[in-house]
Design a protein around this nucleic acid. Structure first.
Lengths: 189, 189
DNA sequence: CGAGCTCTTATGACTAGGTACTAAGAGTAG
DNA sequence: CTACTCTTAGTACCTAGTCATAAGAGCTCG
């Protein structure tokens, strides 16, 4: 890489670090064919923190998002009340990561996921899977709204164990979603 | 925290670091009421790397998963073919994070999410939302399986713009999921 | 032409959070 | 009593920096 003007170098520097925060001053000096000191002055001017600070920031963000995405692994939304094989209630706060950037409307699959995982959770069995579902998205859910999903077990087929769950989701008492789920369970009752 | 035996301390040490990799030897020494050297000997014995290495690892993992979770923000699964307002195909590889730990079966909402986001994507409009959906989970999808979802636009209501999309998902040519979506779009045609 | 300016490079002292190694003391078991 | 484990201490060294100071090169303005 040939030598460039200060301005040009600093622009490239910013871009380079943004793309790969794991790069050291020495590597950058090599890349831009300037001294390490120059790179440090550049970072100072551009308020770019040192390597270890950058790495730490990246790691911390991962740790934060880890916590956030962990419940996704089990139940979407927080279950606040449950009576197995009868009913359950969960709440789900719509955050930035759940909406379309363009219009701040929650993606359908998140609303569905809350309802679906509540339908799974309400079933008193180790294995519960969704067999069929009938969904109606009544109105769109927006960023920062709190969705309260209420599941009610409407019928359990005594022979097959097929369980029918109806989930209604509300935002401020307004119905936003209704889902009828037919659930499969491993053990018969 | 009172002093414990070496074994006990090392177990707690492992747990502590696992829970919070950002802790320094000095903080650990304080916590366990031993010298910093003892902590270092412990880490050596337990093959626990130093703070900066730990942080780096966390950061690197985030960087890897960044790439993986980025498309999640837009479309679940990778779109490999699309003809707007006609049809679309996407593939979705089922990974650890998509399955129930207990039985390695993919959670329904991931299969739904792939289909739903494909239904959204196929629509030639800035704003497309799911109004209704009818789902059938034909058989369970397991870890490491590759789901190929095919969406077909079956009808577009010329007045309202309501668009009907049928999505069929396959694993090795075997039908695993069918979804009928009624989609809402902002602009009439 | 020289003074002042920016830019670059160098140097030295210091920092955090370590590694690697040596040494020494306390307590315990055989 | 000796041998061993465990713990603590201290030293030299490392990386990837910070901060401050100094000096030289190249340009521009009067």
């Amino acid at each position: 890489m040939m030598r460039r003007s200060k301005k040009e170098r600093q622009q490239l520097l910013t871009a380079t670090i943004k793309e790969n925060p794991f790069v050291t001053d020495e590597e950058l000096a090599e890349k831009f064919q300037v001294s390490v000191q120059t790179i440090r002055l550049d970072r100072l001017e551009l308020s770019i923190p040192e390597l270890r600070e950058r790495i730490k920031t990246v790691a911390e963000k991962r740790f934060e998002s880890e916590v956030r995405s962990l419940p996704i692994d089990e139940v979407i939304g927080e279950i606040i009340d449950i009576e197995l094989d009868q009913s359950a209630i969960s709440i789900f706060d719509v955050k930035e990561e759940h909406v379309f950037k363009r219009n701040q409307i929650a993606r359908g699959h998140h609303v569905f996921a809350q309802a679906n995982s509540l339908a799974v959770a309400v079933i008193n069995d180790e294995l519960a899977l969704t067999a069929k579902a009938n969904l109606q998205f009544k109105r769109s859910v927006k960023l920062h709204e709190r969705v309260i999903a209420k599941a009610k077990v409407t019928k359990i087929d005594e022979k097959t164990g097929r369980t029918f769950v109806e989930v209604s989701s509300f935002v401020n008492n307004e119905l936003v979603f209704v889902g009828k789920f037919e659930m499969y369970r491993s053990k018969n009752l």
